[in-house]
Amino acid sequence: MSLVAVSFIFLVVLLCLLAPYISPHDPFEAVARRNTAPLTGNVFLGADVDGRDILTRLLWGGRISLITGVIPTVLATAVSLLIGMSAGYVGGWFDQLLMRSLDIFFAFPLVLVAIVVAGVLTPGLFTVMIAIFIALIPYIARLVRTTTLSVKTQPFIEAARASGARESVIIFRYLLPNTVAPVTVYATTLIGMMMVLGSALSFLGLGVQPPTADWGLMISEGRTVLRRAPHATIFPGIMIVLVALAFGFIGDGLRDAMDPRLRSR
């Protein structure tokens, strides 16, 4: 299943990258009558409220959705590795200080943090990414710290230290690889969820602004003509669900590959 998912994501990425060359129409120009139904005339998936081709806008919008899912998650993972590993490795009051500060963020639902951060800043793609980045750090950092703590006490670290390995070698050669694995699994699962969250912010008008093609924004525009043109709402939603599902499957596959003991029976 995860192989299917990887191929699917690969296909989506490829199609979105090639959007300027393969999309049948211009994403911003009206090419059909407003709210044209699918499979009529020159618009395969129909036209939206402004007569723009939905298939074209799906291809262009995928770029934004993939970016909002991947980039903040990767950056948050990098920062969290730094925070979580130093907290877990150094320990003591430093650990307490960092983790208690992160505790404060756990007092807010993740979605709320993202909404408020995005709402306070000026709307745009960059804002969406900042909002997701900030909201994610506590969650990933906590996982990194827990993993670091459990790896740190294992015999092979002790053995390395006993054989005179330098601090930097222990951290980068022994600790880091063993911490990265579970975190990568977690981050992969998060990508799909964050893509959903990013589209949700744009749906609320706090993220990407019109006339940009974005799946969340397309749903928000489709909402105004839900009765007459449900396809304008349905198609972008299906894309979001499929891509989010695929990232979930990839996460499951990675987990099974990295730790066969956890393989779902």
């Binding site: 969340g216 839900l226 669900v241």
Partner: peptide, 12 residues
């Protein structure tokens, strides 16, 4: 994996 806001619109 379904966005809540989209699910809401479909139900509507």
């Amino acid at each position: 994996n379904t966005p809540l806001y989209w699910l809401g619109l479909i139900l509507v």
